[in-house]
Design a protein around this nucleic acid. Structure first.
Lengths: 248, 248
DNA sequence: TATTTTATCTGATCTAGATCAACTTTAGTT
DNA sequence: AACTAAAGTTGATCTAGATCAGATAAAATA
């Protein structure tokens, strides 16, 4: 089930904790560190950095220095081929870690673009790595986060390789819904931060198909669409659409 | 360029070194360990395990204990949806590491099936992890290998989301060719270990389309196809096919 | 507020690749 | 070697989604 692939360690409770500095406590790093270890982690992490809508957090080809944890906001990650075609590889929201693709070559391989005014914590990878050598739970956590990204990518491959347009859109909406819900936002009503074209790029569809399919869902009474505001009226029907493609 | 995404640290020279035990020396772990560290790594790694063609190395849902390094042979990794549709997420050959997707949840999320008689080294993850805490170069290497998998997956997304059937097949053949070449095998003549259906699953195409496209390439004089034996006659034309989709 | 510019929707076609079907070849098995 | 099952090829159709085109509508900017 594509909408369950995005397993999270975040819970609304964690999000609700006060977040005085840019610590990862509330973000994406493990519960279970000692106060000392926490302290050390905090010293590594630089001040929160704002990224305005439309700005790049990093771009493919830039040298890799840090991972980034999204504190608030919304990003797209995409690979651009030389002729300018864009493949969106993911949409990322608060509490998620970006930039792991860059570890392998020491250069970023994607662009990361803010789709709304955002704030990130910079995690200098060298220092994180060093600390991880001393703090097994942190090391383990990094492996898990990277592994989760791999699992997520496999889910997208399944979607792109096997699903029909309606199934892709349904999976996409349910996945967003679930992720907003986990962060304490409404699961039934949310604002799309991306264009139809970006959705299409992610789902391997043209923007017209995205638009048409959303309209169709609206006609069927599954959702209500007002430009980028989505209201999910009948999530069960959306899920059924997905099951048709997976469960017998 | 899809065929360049698979960056490797292996060189034919490494492969040609004698390989007395199942050590990772020749496989996929870093050059640069001290003899002592090597020693320690060797003690962790259990005896080479044979996997017969058709057998599963592991299956989705099984508890995760170890990563596997392919010593010799060829595997496919795939996610199976409940209705039985298969999405092949990758083909893996000697020197590659499998099972990293399982770290996130402690359960395997893919099936790994041998496509020819193979041999793997089992790397108990708990112990590897522990050793990595003491051996920064090993730790770094693990991060890199996982990151590389993420990059590879993004390449597949680009392929599935943006490319036409001919482009996909061309990318696929060139990628295989390159990987065989790196391992000291011919880059211009190789045996496909997988069925047309498995190729299709990986590339998001039906087996008929795979078959037809291979025939077309043969008619155009790009390749020679004799069942599963592929001979690349005009690799430049294949590359040009790819450039059409990427370079302007 | 007026004016661009950019995003979205919807209809009318077109087409790449899926689907259906029949046949051939290869590989396993007795 | 004969037999069976599995894999591959090729042709004929069909269709989901792409493409092309024009009309709105929203958002950014002057």
């Amino acid at each position: 089930m594509i909408q369950n692939i995005q397993i999270r360690e975040l819970t609304p409770r964690h999000l609700r904790q006060s977040c005085t500095n840019c610590s990862l406590r509330e973000l994406c790093l493990p519960i279970g560190l000692t106060p000392d270890e926490m302290q050390e982690l905090d010293t590594i992490i630089t001040q929160a950095r704002p990224v305005k809508r439309g700005e790049a957090l990093y771009r493919a080809g830039e040298p890799f220095k840090s991972l980034f944890a999204i504190r608030v906001g919304f990003f797209k990650a995409s690979v651009i081929s030389e002729d300018g075609r864009e493949q969106v590889t993911g949409f990322h929201m608060s509490g998620e870690l970006m930039g792991m693709d860059a570890i392998s070559s020491d250069f970023h391989t994607c662009d990361a673009i803010a789709l709304e005014d955002s704030e990130v914590c910079e995690l200098p990878f060298g220092e994180i790595e060093e600390l991880a050598g001393d703090v097994p739970i942190l090391q383990r956590h990094l492996y898990k986060v990277m592994s989760r990204e791999i699992v997520r990518d496999h889910g997208v491959m399944l979607l792109l390789g096997n699903m029909k347009a309606e199934e892709r859109l349904a999976a996409f909406l349910l996945n967003l819904s679930q992720r907003f819900s986990i962060r304490g936002y409404s699961s039934s009503s949310f604002h799309l931060r991306m264009t139809r074209e970006e959705i299409g790029s992610y789902l391997g569809l043209k923007l017209e198909t995205v638009s048409r399919t959303l309209s169709k869902f609206q006609d069927q009474g599954f959702i209500k669409v007002q430009n980028r505001l989505i209201e999910i009226i009948d999530g069960d029907s959306l899920k059924k659409l997905l099951n048709n493609c997976q469960g017998e």
